[in-house]
Amino acid sequence: MIRDITLGQYYPAESVLHRLDPRVKLSGTLLYVISLFLFQSFAGYAVATVFLVTVIVLSHVPVSFMLRGLKAIFILLIFTAVLNIFLTPGRELVSFWKITITIEGLRVAAFMVLRLVYLIVGSSVMTLTTTPSNLTDGLEKGLGWLKFFRIPVHEIAMMMSIALTFIPVLLEETDKIIKAQQARGADFESGNIIRRAKALVPILVPLFVSAFRRANDLAIAMESRCYRGGEGRTKMRPLRYTGRDYAAYSVLIVYLAAIIAVGILF
């Protein structure tokens, strides 16, 4: 299950989307996420679907790879759907015992599930086509103006980038720790919640100890390679907008117009 999380993973490929400036992708994702929450109609979702499908096709990332990310939130999806179906008041559709299913309930549930699925798939398109460091570069440069409010933008971006680098390493390590404790007869699957929570201690302690050791090693390695914060730092590939990026921004403006049009018309 841990391996099913696609959010924050990069899928190397040669596509227009991969080459796009991360700031474009960030703004696009932001716009897309906002639009998902604004849309209340099928027309709105049609627009979002067109946008999402286009982006997926352009990304050259296998669809199966993106959908895998949904496995991790499957329970959440079911839970959302069930709650909405049974708890939304409105016109009665079916009724048995104390439970009533309403038309509104089905509608809200469908939207909620769709919204979540689109949200996850949409944002994983961004992370799958953008290397984490590119992403943080984009954040650092795109949000550079926050420095004037004494927000340490570079430091935050660096922390994010390190965290993203270490996710796969720590996931693999967790797997090894679990195996090592299972080999000593540890049981993570039976018992009540308290017992199960207690069973996590033999995993969490080695994981934390290791994470701290790694952090310490990494700090020394970074200092050894002359790291001293963002001051005076250059970039191997400084972010610079090209024609492709302006074209992409135009597409986003069209999308924005579509959102507004849908809002007015439906």
Partner: peptide, 30 residues
């Protein structure tokens, strides 16, 4: 797992208790 013992390469992946003795007790306790 008690009959076929497997010791992994990195001891850091299994040591977790406050002291050595308690840690060694983990297996038989399970």
């Amino acid at each position: 797992r008690g009959k076929v013992g497997l010791v992994f390469q990195y001891p850091e992946h299994q040591l977790f208790e406050e002291d050595v003795f308690t840690d060694v007790c983990f297996g038989p306790k399970n």
